[in-house]
Each structure stands twice: as structure tokens, then as C-alpha cells.
């Protein structure tokens, strides 16, 4: 953790609203992006992160010093989302989240590929393939490649052992690779059809 982050955390614990806002400025987006990997509803995710930060503010005097602020906040957002989900399933048998997810998957997998600009092609492809994976797999790949965290750091956030992390990563990559190659062929085909139609 950088000295600047250390200072920020200390100031925040001392009650500085300015330091707190700076922490938000730095970490809000990475936390949100990470959160989308297991909470697909952006409104619910916003609420969860809101609750998390207010709880951190209330408990600031009792919080332990943290070694790595990013890892700490990532683990925190993860816990918050899962706590909320648990609460929600207690309250209503059928969560509308599942419907939302199904809808989202179609959005990723089909629509966006076809309508994407050629320059965005590879990015869409990643998104499309990601959409096919399980939440857990998406989560670990996000931490690995979007956040560039090491295996040991990922293990810390997910609260599992390093070998378990490595296994999960292997499995996720295997799935990713499967869909990746499949999409490559489909896309090539679509691209040719598209070009063909366009030219004509």
C-alpha cells in the first residue's frame, strides 16, 4: 500500500471527511466494476456500496489498520453484496435478480456482438465470453486481468487458499478459452456476412 493511501486511511479514521471523499474518488469505480461481476443490478450495487461506505464511516474508530486498502475494500464490497443477497432471499422466495441476469446474458452474448463497431470487436468479444461464465469465474478473471492482482491477493479477497485460487483460475480460464474459440469462429462468420451484405 502506498504511503498516500496509508495517510488517507489514518486521516479517515481520525474523522476527516476530506480523506473519506478522496478514498471514494480513488476506489469507487474499481469497486463498482468488481461488484458487477456478482451483482448484476447496478441500482442494487449502488445501494450496497452506499451502505458499505456509511458503515465504514460509522465504524471508523474501531477499524483495524489495513495493509492493502484496495484488497480490503474489495473484500468489503464482496461481503456487503453477499450479505444483502442473503437478506433478500430471506425476504422473498423468488428474487427478480435471476430474471435480470438472464436478460443481461442475452444482451452480452448476442445483441452487442452483432451491433458492435469493428474497433470494439475484441472488447465486445471479451464481454460476450465473460457473460457466458459463472459469476464466480467472472469474478476471478476480473480480479486477475482487470485489476491485475496476483494469485495471493485474489486468495485474500475471496478468502480461500492460494491453491484453491489457482484451481479456480485454471477452471475459469478453461471455460473462457472454450467460449473464446467458439466466438472467434461465430464472429468471423458474422463479420463475413456483414461485410458481404454491406458491400452489396
Amino acid at each position: 500500500m502506498t504511503d498516500q493511501e496509508q495517510e488517507l486511511w489514518k486521516a479517515f479514521q481520525g474523522g476527516s471527511t476530506k480523506a473519506f471523499e478522496e478514498i471514494l474518488e480513488i476506489f469507487y469505480r474499481p469497486m463498482f466494476d468488481y461488484g458487477t461481476r456478482f451483482q448484476k443490478d447496478p441500482d442494487q450495487l449502488s445501494d450496497d456500496i452506499h451502505d458499505l461506505f456509511l458503515s465504514l464511516w460509522d465504524r471508523r474508530a474501531f477499524l483495524k489498520p489495513v495493509e492493502n486498502l484496495k484488497l480490503y475494500l474489495f473484500a468489503a464490497v464482496r461481503n456487503q453484496v453477499f450479505r444483502q443477497k442473503k437478506k433478500a432471499t430471506w425476504m422473498e422466495e423468488l428474487s427478480d435478480e435471476q430474471e435480470y441476469e438472464q436478460h443481461q446474458e442475452i444482451d452480452y452474448a448476442e445483441i452487442r456482438i452483432i451491433h458492435s463497431e469493428l474497433t470494439d470487436e475484441r472488447l465486445s468479444r471479451i464481454n460476450a465470453v465473460m457473460g457466458k461464465l459463472s459469476k464466480r469465474q467472472q469474478e476471478i478473471l476480473h480480479l486477475r486481468f482487470f485489476e491485475n492482482l496476483s494469485n495471493s491477493q485474489i486468495a485474500e479477497i475471496l478468502n480461500i487458499s492460494e491453491p484453491a485460487t489457482y484451481n479456480l483460475l485454471s477452471k475459469s480460464l478453461k471455460m473462457f478459452r472454450k467460449y473464446w474459440n467458439l466466438h472467434f469462429i461465430v464472429l468471423l462468420f458474422l463479420f463475413i456476412v456483414y461485410k458481404f451484405l454491406y458491400i452489396n
Binding site: 471523499e21 469507487y28 466494476d33 447496478p42 456500496i49 461506505f53 456509511l54 471479451i126 482487470f146
Partner: peptide
């Protein structure tokens, strides 16, 4: 290529929404 692309994946959060959400948190804190 994947590693490089991954890095450029667009954020799921628009700038407006981000500012708005942070503002909401800070308002509650104040």
C-alpha cells in the same frame, strides 16, 4: 492481446452515475 484488451474493457459505471453516487454518500456522511 487478451491481457491488453482486458485492461481497456469499458467500466460498467458512467461518469455521471459515479459522481452522483459519491455525492450521495458524502451527503449522508455530512
Amino acid at each position: 492481446l487478451l491481457i491488453l484488451d482486458w485492461n481497456q474493457l469499458p467500466s460498467a459505471l458512467s461518469d455521471n452515475r459515479r459522481t452522483e453516487n459519491i455525492h450521495k454518500i458524502m451527503t449522508s456522511v455530512y
